[in-house]
């Protein structure tokens, strides 16, 4: 682990004068599995994008343990709505390796292994935009993991998946984390959050409303809103 910890101090994101997220104070320790939960529009996506550098920082600071250039190379991000390049599945998965100067043949061979590992072996030669929603999600995951990132951001990676595919992906994520990689993931699925989380960040109205170790958070949430949310009630 080189690029972590990640330190956010007063990090804020404004778009056209409207505050989306922040101020956020947060330190991501080198190891763990952090799950970001909260109602729709709470700012989960924006928080992940801020960390990854996709959302411009309007105030405060975000620092990695290494230079930004180096940190950027060791992160990967899986988007809430999958972005499919107009290429064959195998070429989509190989693309990040090609960008890093790996030759086409070995990149393809590696992409094939990853595709098979994530249940895409039978659609290797299909056009990525024609895949089903769940297959697109799996492709995104394979494409993110092929560069062996130290930290993986996942924005609701199981949103389109059926129960079985969800379990498969959870097993993969568990393995990725056991291998010592850092995962930060948002989800709507409280069951999934309970199964996977080591730490929880509960977002509400663009702010971290409550955060802490998963076991404590789920057994004894401190705030009323977190109690309501973990009971499956509507929180506003």
């Amino acid at each position: 682990m080189v690029i972590l910890p990640l330190k956010m101090v007063g990090a804020t994101a404004y778009v056209r004068g409207k505050r989306l997220v922040g101020p956020v104070d947060l330190t991501l320790a080198p190891e763990g599995f952090t799950i970001v939960i909260g109602p729709n529009g709470a700012g989960k996506t924006t928080l992940l994008r801020l960390m990854h550098g996709l959302q411009r920082l309007s105030g405060g600071s975000i620092d990695w343990a290494v230079s930004l250039t180096e940190a950027r190379r060791k992160q990967a991000y899986v988007f809430q709505s999958p972005i499919m390049m107009r290429r064959r599945v195998v070429d989509c998965i190989a693309y990040p390796l090609l960008l890093r100067g790996e030759n086409k043949k070995s990149a393809r061979a590696k992409a094939k292994t990853y595709a098979e590992r994530y249940g895409l072996g039978h659609v290797l030669q299909n056009w990525a935009p024609d895949l089903s929603g769940g297959e697109k999600q799996k492709l995104s995951l394979a494409r993110a993991l092929i560069t062996e990132p130290e930290i993986l951001f996942l924005d609701e990676p199981c949103a389109n998946l059926d129960g079985r595919a969800t379990r498969e992906i959870e097993a993969i994520l568990q393995k990725v984390q056991d291998e010592g990689n850092r995962i930060v993931m948002s989800t709507h699925d409280l069951g999934q959050a309970r199964r996977l989380a080591k730490d929880v960040i509960f977002m509400l109205n663009g702010k971290i409303h409550e955060s802490g170790e998963a076991e404590e958070f789920f057994s004894a949430p401190q705030t009323l809103e977190a109690q309501a949310f973990t009971n499956g009630e509507i929180v506003e």
């Binding site: 990854h52 996709l54 190379r73 988007f79 972005i83 390049m85 290429r87």
Partner: peptide, 28 residues
């Protein structure tokens, strides 16, 4: 149009300007 679609992915993958342009030209 394709850039609007690919934007976040290509930024996330740390592409250089030349890599972006060649991916966009090739895919369209």
């Amino acid at each position: 149009d394709l850039w609007a679609n690919y934007h976040d992915l290509l930024i996330s993958l740390n592409t250089t300007r030349a890599q972006r342009i060649s991916a966009l030209l090739w895919d369209s």
